[in-house]
Structures are given as structure tokens and as C-alpha cells.
Design a binder for these strands. Structure first.
Lengths: 213, 213
DNA sequence: ACTCTCGAGTTACCGCTAGTAACACACGTT
DNA sequence: AACGTGTGTTACTAGCGGTAACTCGAGAGT
């Protein structure tokens, strides 16, 4: 890869950094979570130590990479959450936005959430330490919105935090399962999850022949 | 390591396998997700190749280790789910059982769910590929129970699966967050999550001064 | 014009990992 | 006595994250 087409070196370090991140992105999209520092360096047309100078260590590069996607996703989610519509519609829009995102770039989100579950090899990114932040950030963000807008009485702030993390976890796990098995359309999944959040679990009747769940 | 204190070799391979698993368990409890094959072999008083003869590869050992804990946890959850009580009480009991389990052995469950998020070092178990099965199994199991007992009308089976995975994800994410921050008691967390499942999100009133969430 | 500095980039390495090949010893069987 | 067979070892490969030490080339100073 002859990336230095022009010997222009007035490129700031920031610009370089962005180039490296884009190269990393490409590799992650191609190789999935198996992307190695060597591969990323090669894709960027340079060698490892430069990567380390820019990002400190693998975690630093990962964090930078994750921040981009996380920020983008959070922006989308915020937009869905702020849409002028009924509460139920907003919830569905938010769920749908998240699911659409992981559907559009499954490898990226698999990379962000699931450490090295690619097809071959075993030495992948150790994402575990950093996958939490993504879910945590989403959880905290959602908690903020819930706490800001809903009147939950005393202790509502804490309740909102629990719910924020819980709902994000629900969304994540269901999305993950759905992405793997594709048992239904996205719309159906959204509807089902919203129904769950809307208390249909509590409202459902027992099946004939025994005590209910 | 003179492990052959007695030349007793009538020990069946199964017995040996269980010993190895127990050693692995000990190491995981001590070192967390950083446990390496070398460390486990050393703890068992043997060397690596034997581990590989018994478990094939790291994934095999991990799978065997995970199966033990997963089975045990699932048994507990089933018991809580089958207790003779109201639906809400059962849900709370199940949540509490899960949370009590991860509270009692945080390192084990961190190991099962989070790949290599230990304090130091970076080369840990690549659990990512295997953490899904645990959550998947719990999700499917819960889906089974929900589908068996609740009358959800047409498409109820699929709805139950979505809910199973969603609820498990909620439980997992909330538990994970709670274990890290301990923002409240276990009972409070259980109650908050059950409230969420019981539709309090939909029922809550908007806060004064703007449209609701 | 010559040197000096300095930063970008390289090669070559370390220590670690998962995983394997090849060898060594003790046992019950024929 | 000779022979597999199971159990264990040592010594190795290949690849990873990460780093030390070197090289090279562009500007600044005199």
C-alpha cells in the first residue's frame, strides 16, 4: 500500500491519526475481531511502532476506534429518542435505530462487543475490557433521558439508572441473538421488545392447565 | 512436580478430567480471566500437553468449565422459576438467584462473560466466542418456560424467544453494572428490574415541563 | 554550503501465548 | 521377553503485543 503518494508532510498528527483510524476501520471491517496490530499497520502502509506512538497500546487504538462508532451510534439514538412522537413510538424508534445499526455493520458491532469471535485464529483483539464502556455509556445515556423525562417518584434517579442499563442490556442481547439467527423481521423484533417493556409479560394470561410463569 | 505420589493408575480418565477441571476452577478463581493454560497445568501439577489431550484446545477446556457453572446456575434458576408462588414472586426470585450467584462468585462469572478484563496483562482467555452460549442457553431456557406457561396468542412462541433473550440480557447487563458499582442493594435492584418488566416504564407519568420519554 | 537537531519510520528483538511433535517411562498382555 | 498403550515430559513452532535502538530525511542556524 503506497499511501504516501505525495510526500506532503505538513499533514498534522491529527490528520495522520485519523488516517490510521480509518485504516483500522477498514481492517476491522474486513477481518472482523481478528484484526491485529500488524494487519492494521500494514493496511495503513506503515509499521507497528508508529501505531503505538499514536495510540499507546492496543487498548488505546481500540478505545479511539470504539469512541468513533459509539459516538455516532449514540447520536443516532439520541435523535430517535428526541423525535416528536408518543413515548411508545420513541422507544420503538430507538430500538429500531440500534438494530438497524448493528444490522448495517454487523462486523463492526461484533468487534465492539464480542472479543475475537471471528472464524479462524484465536489471537484477536481483547475487547472485553472495552466492550463494557460502550454498553455502559449507552446505559448511562438512556438513564439520563429516563430520569430527566419521567416522573418516577422518590428514588427515581436510581430507578432510571437500573432501567437504563437493563433496557440497553435487553436491546443488546436480543439484537445479538437476532443478528445470529434472524428468526424474524426487524420490525417484529422491535414490536416484541416494546411489548415486553410495556408490561405484556405481567398482563399475559396463564396457559390452561397449570400455574402461570 | 511429583504428582504420582502413589503409582495408583486405576484412576479413570474421567476422574483425571474432573481433577483438571477443579484445578482450572481454582486458577480462574485466583487469577480471574487471565488464567493461562500454563498456569492451569501448573496448578494441576502437570504440563500443558496433557491438558490438550483431555480438552483438545483452550476452547474445549473453557467449554467444559463453563458447562459446569452454567448447568449449576441453570438448575438454580429453574428451581426459582418453578417455585410455588405468584408470577411476580417467581420473577423476582429468579432475578435474585442470578444476582446472588454472580455476587457470590464474581470472578467466575466475570470469567464466563467477560473475556480478559483482569487487572494486568493482556493475554487472557478469549472467552468471547464462548460467552454467547451461556447467555444463549439462559435465553432459550427462559423462552421455553415463558412459551410453555404463558398464553401469548398466535406467534407466542416467537414472542417468548424474544422475551427470553431480552430478559436474560437485561438481567445480565444490569447485574454486570450493579456488580461494578454497587449502587444499591440486591433487593432494590431486583425490585427495580421487576418493576421494569411489569410495565412501570409505560405507566410512569411525564415529568412536568415537557413531553415524556 | 555545511552541520545539527529532531521527528517519522524502520529492523530486530523480547516475553508471552496457544498449540504440537517427539521422546521416555511404566504398565498389563500375549 | 517383547509389545503396544496410556501418561508424562522436554523442546519446539508460529504468532501475538510491545519496545529498544537504529536510520533517514527535512528544516534551522551559523
Amino acid at each position: 500500500m503506497d499511501t504516501t503518494q505525495r510526500t506532503g508532510q505538513q499533514r498534522s498528527a491529527d490528520r495522520r491519526r485519523r488516517e490510521l483510524l480509518e485504516a483500522a476501520d477498514r481492517v476491522v471491517l474486513r477481518d472482523g475481531p481478528q484484526a491485529s496490530m500488524n494487519a492494521i499497520a500494514a493496511e495503513a502502509g506503515i509499521t507497528k511502532p508508529i501505531l503505538y506512538r499514536h495510540f499507546g497500546d492496543k487498548g488505546g487504538l481500540y478505545a479511539a476506534l470504539a469512541k468513533r462508532h459509539t459516538d455516532a451510534l449514540l447520536d443516532s439514538l439520541r435523535a430517535a429518542l428526541d423525535a416528536p412522537a408518543e413515548r411508545r413510538e420513541r422507544v420503538e424508534a430507538t430500538l429500531d435505530t440500534y438494530l438497524a445499526a448493528i444490522e448495517a455493520r454487523p462486523q463492526v458491532y461484533r468487534f465492539l462487543m464480542h472479543p475475537s469471535d471471528g472464524s479462524a485464529g484465536e489471537h484477536g483483539f481483547d475487547v472485553g475490557k472495552h466492550s463494557a464502556p460502550l454498553l455502559r455509556r449507552m446505559g448511562e445515556e438512556l438513564a439520563q433521558v429516563i430520569g430527566d423525562r419521567l416522573d418516577l417518584g422518590p428514588g427515581g434517579r436510581q430507578l432510571a439508572r437500573v432501567w437504563g442499563h437493563g433496557i440497553v442490556g435487553m436491546m443488546h442481547a436480543a439484537g445479538d441473538w437476532w443478528l445470529g439467527e434472524r428468526p424474524c423481521s426487524r420490525a417484529e423484533l422491535v414490536r416484541s421488545l416494546a411489548d415486553l417493556l410495556w408490561g405484556r409479560l405481567a398482563a399475559a394470561g396463564d396457559k390452561v392447565g397449570g400455574p402461570g410463569f
